[in-house]
Each structure stands twice: as structure tokens, then as C-alpha cells.
Amino acid sequence: MTFAPENNNKFDAVAPTADGGFIALGSTLAEKYGGSESLLLVKTDGRGNETWTVTMPEIAPASVAETDDGGYIIGAYNMSTTVVDQDFNYQGSSFLIRTNAAGEEEWRQVIPGMKVSSVEETADGGYAAIGWLWNPPESENETTAVIVKTDGDGTPAWNRTFPGISANVGTVTADGGYVLGGTKSPFTYDIGDAFLIRLDADGNTLWHENYQVPVIFDVKETDDGRFVYAGNYWYGLVDGDGKEVWLRNMEGLTGYAVELRPSGGYVVAGTDARSGEGFVFGTDGDGTILWDTAFTATGIYGAASAPGGYTLAGIRFLSPDTSAAWLAGITEAVSPAPTAAPGFGAAAAGAALLLLLAGRRRRG
């Protein structure tokens, strides 16, 4: 399905909802260059048909999740850039926004100086917001990774900071702790800059490991307490202590999302940095690719597990000057065979994917 309330639109994240549908978060721009960005929140049924749409002006999207009571928690931010003595000065704030099941805003909390990457509900009914702080010009480090733990009203209870790095993703672990992932700098990704940090429920560091990859964009905990991640050109698996189990190269593909396969193994989705095409592939437990496919004129930035398959979220390019926010549902082949290494074309052998959600919807 495509959603186009303005000339330029995209989805950055998608999450399943308890009613079998999805909540998708993205942005919309009336003007491609110099226009004001508005947050786009769309609730759909299980086949991607719109239930309702909400826009929030002057903020950019980061993450969304359904809460235990059927509402939604949104991470969003705004940012400005100034140049002082040839140094770039980044300023902005993050927002934790709580809505009810109909998308109506109930409260909004501001976290000054933070660029939020992800937010999740915690077992005590509060929230964990993860991202980074912009450091002033001439600071020793460009950014400082941060996790902010709040109560149920979004009021900060505690925070932990990690100088010299930036967190692109975070998740609440099965034991009530947290894992943060990211890179040394949000501007330059170099081999060895990627990291994972594991914290206990009180925010104490259990371990901090770096890996020989540039950046981590998504991480998921596995059923046996390990962690699978995806980023620029690599995806990997580490054990519960952060020690590498295996690492696989993706040959120019950027993995923005990783999910667990119900039958074992993993799904990685993202965008080819060379062609701009979206991709998705499934692996076995050792990271060997079993099926894969690509999507022309489409970039993929988010993914979620769904009954019988997966839902992908991103952008569909309609013309050089227009784009639509895009959702698609896929299911994988029953008995896929291993395929060659990534770098596949529009429909690689062995993919056997069925697009469940198709068509185009335009509004406005």
C-alpha cells in the first residue's frame, strides 16, 4: 500500500498491533527542498488498509510501538544546524508522545538536546528512550550516547550517558535490562566503530563490545538470549555476553531492520547503497541466506514480523519529485534453498515471495 498525503512521504518504522494490524511511522513534506517536515502516523488493518492517519507538524520520526493498553508511544525529534567559525553546531530536542488507540495525543514530554533513535515501553509501565546528545562545538566528542528511563507519564527517572559514541537503536531485554547499538559517529562509519552495550534494569553496564563493522542500525534479542544485528554491509550474531558468534558481509547492502524467523534464523531488510533498491532476505541460524528479493524504485527502512510473514516499510519513488510512504506484506517459500551471496537483482532465484499488500492509495 502507498500513502501520499503530500508530495513527498516515507515510512521509517512499522510495528505490529494486537488486533492483527500495524502502526507505521514516517514523515511527509509538502516541498522536497526547504519544506516543513511533519510526522506521519498511520494505523492499518492486517492487509495494510488504512484505519486512520494522524500528522504532527514540525517534528521528525524516530520510532513507534504499541503499548500494553492498546495506545502508542512515539519517539520524535527536531533539529537545527548553524555554522560557527566553520564548525557545525547541531541543536534540537526529542519528544516522547503518547497517544490513545485512535492516535489522539494524550501527553508529550520534551528531552532537550537529545536526538532520539528508539523508544520502548518497559515492564513497569514506563519507557526507555535511546539515542544521543549533541555536544557543543570544540567538545572532545561530537556526540554522547544516552538512555533515558521514564515513568508512565514520560517524566525522566534516570539516565546513563556514554561519551564519544551515538546510539542508533535500543531494545528492552527479556530480563528487564537494555541493549544499545550504534557507532562512534553519526557522520562517519568506519570499520570497528560499531558497538553493543548491555545494561541491567537499573542502567548499570554489564558489558560494552565493539565489532569490526561500521555501524549497527537494528538489533533483536533471540529466544535463547543472544543478539542479532544489522547495519552497513554486515549482519552478525553475538552471545549473551556480547561475544561474536558469526559475522556475514552483505556486499554494499545497508540493513536497517532485522527480525527473527519463526522457523529459526533471521530476516534482514534495507536498501542497496549502490542502486537505491530495497531488499529483504531470510537466513538460517548460521546466517546463510535461504531466500532474497529486491524492490525497484523502493527504499526499505523498517520491518516487522507478522502472522505468516513480514511487513516492510519505506518509500516508493513515484517520480523524480514525488514519493509515497510504502507498506508491503510478504511471506516466504515453504522450503527455500540456499542462495548465492547478496547483490541480487529484482527477483533472485529461491525468493518465492508473495506480495500480500499491493496497490496505490493517494489522498489530499
Rank of each mutant, 00 (worst) to 15 (best):
T2C: 02
F3H: 02
P5Q: 04
N7W: 08
N9T: 09
D12K: 03
V14W: 07
A15V: 07
T28S: 15
A30T: 06
E31G: 05
G34S: 00
E37R: 09
L40K: 04
D45R: 05
R47D: 15
N49Y: 07
E50A: 10
E50G: 01
E50Q: 13
E50V: 11
V54A: 07
T55Q: 15
M56D: 09
M56H: 14
P57V: 10
S63F: 13
I73V: 15
G75R: 07
G75V: 06
Y77S: 00
S80E: 14
T82P: 12
G92V: 10
G92K: 03
F95Y: 15
F95E: 01
L96A: 13
N100V: 07
E104I: 05
W107Y: 14
V110R: 12
V110I: 15
V116M: 11
S118I: 08
D124T: 12
G125P: 13
A128P: 15
P136T: 02
P136Q: 02
E138A: 10
N141L: 03
T144I: 12
V146Y: 08
V146P: 11
V148Y: 05
V148F: 03
V148C: 05
V148S: 02
D153P: 00
A157G: 11
A157Q: 14
W158M: 04
T161P: 00
F162W: 12
F162H: 12
A174V: 11
G177M: 07
G182Q: 03
S185F: 04
D190Y: 03
I191D: 06
I191E: 07
I191S: 06
L196S: 01
L199F: 14
A201E: 14
A201G: 01
N204F: 12
T205A: 06
N210W: 06
I216V: 13
F217A: 05
V219R: 04
K220D: 02
K220P: 08
G225S: 08
R226E: 15
Y229Q: 03
Y229E: 00
A230D: 11
G231R: 02
Y233Q: 07
W234P: 00
G242C: 07
E244N: 08
T254D: 13
G255L: 00
P262V: 03
Y266T: 10
V267C: 09
V268E: 08
T271L: 05
S275T: 14
E277C: 06
V280Q: 01
V280H: 00
D286L: 10
T288K: 10
D292I: 04
T296N: 09
A304R: 05
A304Q: 11
A306P: 03
A306G: 08
A313W: 11
I315F: 00
I315A: 10
D321E: 12
A325D: 02
V334Q: 11
S335Q: 09
P342L: 06
A347P: 03
A347S: 11
A348Q: 13
A349L: 13
R361K: 07
R363H: 12
R363V: 11
